[in-house]
Design a protein around this nucleic acid. Sequence first.
RNA 1: CGCGGGGUAGAGCAGUUGGCAGCUCGUCGGGCUCAUAACCCGAAGGUCACAAGUUCAAGUCUUGUUCCCGCAACCA
Length: 641
Amino acid sequence: MEKKEKFYITTAIAYTSKKPHIGNTYEIILTDAIARFKRQQGYDVFFLTGTDEHGEKIEQLANEAKIPPKQYVDSVAKEIRDIWDLMNTSYDKFIRTTDDYHEETVQKIFKKLYDQGDIYKGYYEGLYCTPCESFFTETQLVDGKCPDCGREVKQAKEEAYFFKMSKYQDRLLKYIEDNPGFIQPESRKKEMINNFIKPGLQDLCVSRTSFKWGIPVDFDPKHVVYVWIDALTNYITALGYKCDSKDDLYKKYWPADVHVIGKDIIRFHTIYWPIMLMALGEELPKTVYGHGWYLFGEDKMSKSKGNVIYADYLVKKFGVDAVRYYCLAEMSFAQDGSITYDAIINKYNSDLANVLGNLVNRTVSMIHKYFDGKIYLPTDEKDVDKELKSSIAIIADNVESNMNKLYVADALNEVMNIARKCNKYIDETEPWVLGKEEVTKERLKTVLYNLVESIRILSILLEPFMPETATKIQKQINANELAYETVKTFGKTQEGKVGEAVPLFARLDDKKVLEEIHNEISVEKKLATVEDEKVNVITIDEFEKVQLKVGQVLSVEKVEKADKLLKLEVDLGTEKRVIVSGIAKWYNESNLLNKKIVVVTNLKPVKLRGIESNGMLLAAGEEDVKLLTIDGDLPAGTNIH
RNA sequence: CGCGGGGUAGAGCAGUUGGCAGCUCGUCGGGCUCAUAACCCGAAGGUCACAAGUUCAAGUCUUGUUCCCGCAACCA
């Protein structure tokens, strides 16, 4: 490629609340594959990643751990960066939102938006109960009084800064419609337009006074900048955007070509972020790609379910490139992916050991066996050879077009098709027959040459996905021509000698490995729960604050316009109460009526969907929820202790 | 009737502008021996969710029904 175009690609910044699991790690691997591919093609790539380190949650976690927030985020940020490095990702910069240059610029941006009138000081308006120090909405009040303590409330206001989103919504809508590639996958586009933009954007609250761990608003220091302006702006501060001036890096790389993010934050990247950029007078990113999540089988990964898979553990078991391969190959565009240990082993064996590893191994072994490791130039061309070459040329084109559409899994699968094609070519040409007699050995030279050359091309196309493996292959076949353009010109391999034949991926014994994993994770799980329970110890006094009683369900009714809510009337002996609960997915009138259940009776009432709920039911489970019931018979109203 | 996506072989998925229903894994049978019990070939397996319509022709277009998923709402 003669002319080097720039290509700026980013991941979302990872929140430093806890160690990232494989689902979070997928994003950096995915982005890395795209970045490496673009570099290979000659683009001048800048690849940014980093960490999002402020917020109330981190303040709390640090408090619990009894360390300063900065110390807390330092250690998690390091853990995150170590995993990114372990995954062999080629980011050019790792930004932390606690970096001083970032904090400085965020303050300037906030000030600028305030000065030009896009951010204004407003109020959370509401009814305030002074003793309870909380705000309530009209619907939350009980008989016009504080639902907490029953005292009078008064109209009050709390300061907050708001961003005038509505001002830019027409421009945003036009941009989205004029740039069909902006939101990827496309199905998300309608979601954003219909759910948020068309109904009219609400002004966004961009500051908080309820916690301290954030970037202070410099002209009003009791406020800290809330996550939107703090986190999203990393994409420009990292390049040296300074509000009043801009570094060369920024001038060169902005706007971003692709923001790779999880599907859960598409809204922030396709609505708030572009509007912030418009307000700053900067260009908008070209593409925002919201990828799917890795699920454990069909379930969400969650610590409480004990099904969290971590990248570093997988690397220990299978190696970096096998993990990269699985993640990249198994997530199809615009969908969620599924990851289980079983599936990883299966894919490892069938794709990496059998198809790819074995191909390289058998080819290099044959060259040693028949020609003492020497590669000869081809002397003739038969139809099978032509067919091999044309297949590879088509595959190379497919890889490129798929990558350009961000169809990474499809691209990688195409690369593997080269190996499949080669295995077939071996069978068709039967080198072991050609090797038997001197007259056919001439033909054998050509066959083996074609294989080595095909493998060379394969290794180049494999680089973005599995860089280490690509290098290992190139070493074994002793390839020198490694430029991307040469994948399109079959025949670049020169005479020479191949290296030693070393298996790339040793076949795994699935039963043995699964058993090993099973043992290891059950030990880890036990350690983790023990630790969890130690941290959250409460005293008997604290527990007794919660008042529990036996309740009997008198009536059940579905709450309109809410698919999770049931309205229950519950007999508590001395009184009957209405409780609204989010269990409609699992319970209905027929399996709930007359049941004796456990009720929290001294919980602050809330209005849910307009109905006042006085208490809470106890239930267990996440995907499948079961209510706690009473063993045996006790009258409604019995105290639980 | 809040908005959107989807239902294709046992599993996971592809199928672009209508033109012989495909890929990977798994199962069964065969071949081969260079290679990591690897590789290659063949077979079985489909009412393309259901129903109606347009058309010479529908997985593909239209309408209705149904189920699943996402967003929103809402779950303490």
